[in-house]
Nucleic acid binder design. Structure first.
Lengths: 154, 154
DNA sequence: TACTCACTTGCAACCTTGTTGCATGTACAG
DNA sequence: CTGTACATGCAACAAGGTTGCAAGTGAGTA
């Protein structure tokens, strides 16, 4: 780490976390650009699966082109660092991929605020399928009202 | 066009099924229009959940405006006669609603051909939710390879 | 049967989400 | 420091879905 003084100074505040993310990105075989670092950081700290729009807002000062964000997200998914699914509105949502096993996934979507939460629920027992069908993945999609919205309506 | 004679004649062929559908639509509190009858008929005979586009093609001679089809489908869902869900591509798919209880639903989506099948699987046991969350609906989303595609790739 | 009116339909325009092609910029290896 | 392959931004496009409004029609009523 030796380049310009200012760059080092600005980075030093969060250098620990960022350096870790950057290293992870490089080890996946890509360049550690601000866009990728920031998006991965946002996904890491998000309590729920985010839409492209959510992430765009979360970027704050670092404005990325729509297309770039799509490409970053696609790369994250391809690199196995993120998970992509669709919500009930038909919009893609992204969340950090749990290391390794991600065969089963459980989402809770709040009908009131629209947020999607990734739950650590145990995978449900696979049901009996018609003859000839083979199962690769199970997504359990729960809907209802989240704690925050339950408080507000009470 | 001569109204009474020809119209009655053409209808008489399928009058049994159509009259039943029409009655069902009226009992839901709406007018039994050709559009609604036809769409409901298509959904009834479909083995899988259909996209807006699928239904548009299935309409054949009776061409409906895109918007009208969307509105008919939305009405069917609102009336409880159809069920709306999204596939992996983020496109809405429609299927006939099982009479009455539709709290839980199971879909199987084939990754190869993209078709979506509605299964009569028993509702999975609701998992433990974080405090304050309330559950209204469960969708179990299975993915893998359907029987047809398994045969083709074999 | 004829009338009437609210419910439906069709059309046009628009929005959101997501993708593709190409020129420019930049991370990082040498 | 420099060159190059990878990233980014811009513009244009495509599909899916929605909204507003004028015209058409089902079905109850006289």
């Amino acid at each position: 780490m030796t380049p310009t003084a200012t760059a080092t100074a600005t980075l030093s505040a969060q250098s620990g976390a960022e350096a870790s993310l950057a290293a992870q990105i490089r080890s996946a075989g890509a360049r550690a650009t601000p866009a990728r670092i920031r998006v991965l950081q946002i996904l890491r700290t998000a309590p729920a699966a985010l839409t492209h729009h959510d992430i765009d807002l979360a970027l704050g000062t670092l404005t990325l082109d729509r297309v770039t964000l799509y490409r970053v997200l696609d790369w994250l998914v391809e690199a196995g660092l993120a998970h992509k699914s669709t919500d009930a509105r038909g919009v893609f949502r992204f969340s950090v991929a749990a290391a390794g096993e991600h065969q089963a996934h459980t989402h809770f979507r709040c009908d009131a605020c629209g947020r999607v939460f990734c739950l650590d629920a145990p995978p449900p027992a696979p049901p009996r399928l018609p003859a000839g069908f083979s199962l690769l993945r199970i997504d359990l999609d729960l809907r209802g009202c989240c704690a925050d919205c339950a408080v507000q309506t009470a």
